[in-house]
Design a protein around this nucleic acid. Structure first.
Lengths: 415, 415
DNA sequence: CTATTTTGTAAAGTAAGTTTATTATAATAA
DNA sequence: TTATTATAATAAACTTACTTTACAAAATAG
């Protein structure tokens, strides 16, 4: 693609400096003009100008004086969090989750419902809209400004055009989900891949806070990665970056749904773990799992985690091996990206130490030492609903970083 | 790392727009003010302002009128290429190469010499300086402005501090090579890893020209990658990005120098290919290679390429297998980065179709289809001295993209 | 020769920042 | 109590990169 010539204008300069101030306020909680001047390098009059406009848009509020040792007391300001509210929607394989958050990621309301019988785009979005309306009802709408809706989906998503390009678990292709949902809800919608949304959630509210570069690994049905580079989500040329699930780890390993052999996903995803367990049980390996089920085909990944925590040998061994492979896959990412941190999230966290211990050991064994100095591999602390928060965070990113004038953000969202 | 708050100032705005104009001039060869205005989106008076300053600094020159169908004839301008000259230095495992280039990458002079007996930093840099002086002599120095020296080195390099952190083939650690060379040459020096330099060369003068995202793979002694993301070289947190050589492709494969088993480098580097060939010959496999050498240990990688081109079965098979593994490694990069292009360079290119055919086939077999749509995997067209050009290109990047005021670029370099 | 088209400059205007001067207010020292 | 010092903040003038508007210059079409 030709790299489009892009001029910088005074408007952009103002916007960027304004958003810089907002980011500092979000991070610090509160700050005085003098502090902001020192942090940003902008002069005090420049900060005063910016703050005047932010107050005009009712984006910040005066917190009163704070005491210092000597000299005139500074006036503190903070984000007026009730100005920005956003809705997060996560379409999962078994349910639709919707949450209402303020700009600081605090939950205002939350609901979850099953998928509709029919999962064609139209019915799906109709159901999503119903749940959104429920969530809006839960909270008295009049008092808050809903900036918009963030939607997280599995598969390849084109966030620029708002299109669900290719979601493997659904019978869709190139569906304009943004348009569909905007038509139904009459609210502006942002869309991205679920892994990317999770990564944004970690960046703004989790263990990736303010990191320049880190990678979020989501392991449940499959294995995916969200990549943050230079504090910027990295999508790749046609929004396919981070597809670590089909990295080949074991040449001539087990057959994968993608047609190749030995992909990480065939060795480490929850789907493959469950499959391996069922097949081992059928082969006659002794296990708690066998005792609990007459029909082996009903063994779920949750059962396997449970069994492992009850010291079942078979379950532990399978989890250990899968985690070891995952560690190898992640070491590849550390070698190639040299990030500051890797954050692990998704259903796999339910495996706790049965998963994390072998994973971390294998990771450090296989990663280049120079690339994991002053580095951390850790689990997400955002909890089981991180996907919904992540979807909502698409708007946080938009407000604090996006290239749109702030004035509109404050007004457009007013209902 | 904490993401430093970075304001945008009017100075930066001007600088960026000025460099934007320069980039367009470099790319198009020449342009009129009116054209520049249309391409950049800047108004004509703004362009006039910028061009006046660029002429003042003698960075551009008037090319006279060009004919158009209707209306006043536009005046064309072009980069004054004799203003900027740069020296590229490549320190290789067996030699030091030095070249003198203009800002358009055209070679003015070139020399190559053996490494000194003693490869400690001091002697090494002394030798480098000698060769630089020879190259400068070759060209009558008085007439040109040498902006500075670009130095490309293998191993981990910290380009910010100008330090060779860890070069595996040398007995160094954390050597301030920039400082050393600046002291000797009295010219400003820029340093980076050889793979990264090669990638810049492809971006400015090769098949990566103006691409947003692509990856350069260098295969010779080892296997390394240079990564271009968002038209920006991606270094990673502590300058270790792109270390694809130690990606594990074959769990429990051959032992690698890094201590792990089945790294890409043990399967696909020229070193490993040569090793495999020698061991197969010793095992008694028939081959042209055996007939030519009494001492098998003298078989080199060049011999293997030759043998393969003469239809030697053993050589061909080994190259084919190594290339197949390389294809798997590159498919991982395509899956994870989803770049626009992958460019292959390094000694391996001497293997020609014996290497490229199986590599490409294996690559497309293993890469995710969605990630290699509208994608190209290709060989570098920059020739065997791309490493030297690449080193010099560190300055091209600095001039056209770097965050330093242009006025200084034009003046500092004057000898 | 005039109308039209395109390139380009001149002069005034805009606005986001900086510089300099000044005010406000608190703690501390005389 | 009063002067001094430190820190926060504003006011007013200045700077400057870009835009707007007006217009000049130069070429072709008719």
């Amino acid at each position: 693609m030709y790299n489009p010539a892009q001029k910088i204008s005074k408007d952009m300069m103002k916007q960027m400096n304004q958003k810089l101030v907002l980011r500092i306020l979000k991070e610090k909680g509160s700050a005085s003009k003098s502090e902001l001047s020192k942090i940003t390098g902008l002069t005090l009059p420049a900060i005063t100008d910016i703050m005047t406009e932010l107050e005009l848009y009712q984006v910040i509020e005066n917190l009163g004086e704070s005491r210092i040792k000597r000299g005139r007391f500074p006036t503190l300001f903070q984000l007026k969090k009730e100005v920005f509210h956003v809705i997060g929607v996560s379409i999962r394989s078994e349910s639709i989750r919707v949450g209402l958050y303020n700009i600081l990621g605090e939950t205002m309301a939350y609901t979850e419902t099953a998928l509709p019988e029919n999962t064609d785009p139209e019915t799906m979005m109709e159901r999503v809209n119903e749940v959104i309306q429920v969530v809006i009802q839960k909270y008295e709408v009049g008092s808050l400004n809903i900036l918009g809706i963030g939607l997280g989906m599995h598969g390849i998503v084109n966030p620029m055009e708002g299109i669900s390009v290719y979601p493997p678990h659904l019978q869709w292709e190139n569906v304009p989900i943004r348009q569909l949902l905007e038509n139904k809800t009459k609210l502006p919608v942002l869309v991205d891949n679920d892994c990317n949304s999770l990564t944004l959630a970690e960046y703004w509210f989790g263990k990736g806070e303010n990191l320049n570069s880190f990678i979020t690994i989501n392991v449940d049905y499959g294995v995916g990665a969200g990549i943050m580079i230079d504090s910027q989500l990295f999508h790749g040329r046609n929004y396919g970056a981070g597809q670590i699930g089909h990295t080949i780890i074991q040449d001539n390993g087990p057959l994968c749904s993608c047609g190749n052999y030995g992909c990480l996903e065939t060795l480490s995803s929850e789907l493959s773990i469950a499959g391996q367990a069922r097949s081992k049980i059928k082969q006659g390996f002794p296990s708690l799992l066998k005792e609990r089920y007459t029909d082996v085909n009903h063994v779920t990944i949750t059962d396997i985690y449970d069994a492992a925590h009850n010291n079942d040998k078979l379950a532990s061994n399978i989890l250990e091996e899968a985690s070891r492979y995952l560690g190898i896959g992640l070491s590849t990412l550390a070698n190639v990206f040299n990030p500051e941190k890797i954050i692990i999230t998704g259903g796999i966290l339910r495996g706790k130490q049965s998963v994390m211990d072998p994973l971390i050991e294998s990771f450090y064994t296989h990663a280049l030492k120079t690339n994991v100095e002053d580095f951390e591999i850790t689990t997400s602390g955002l909890g089981a609903k991180a996907d919904v928060l992540g979807a909502a965070t698409l708007w946080v990113e938009h407000v604090f970083k996006g290239d749109f004038p702030l004035s509109k953000a404050g007004k457009e969202g007013i209902t």
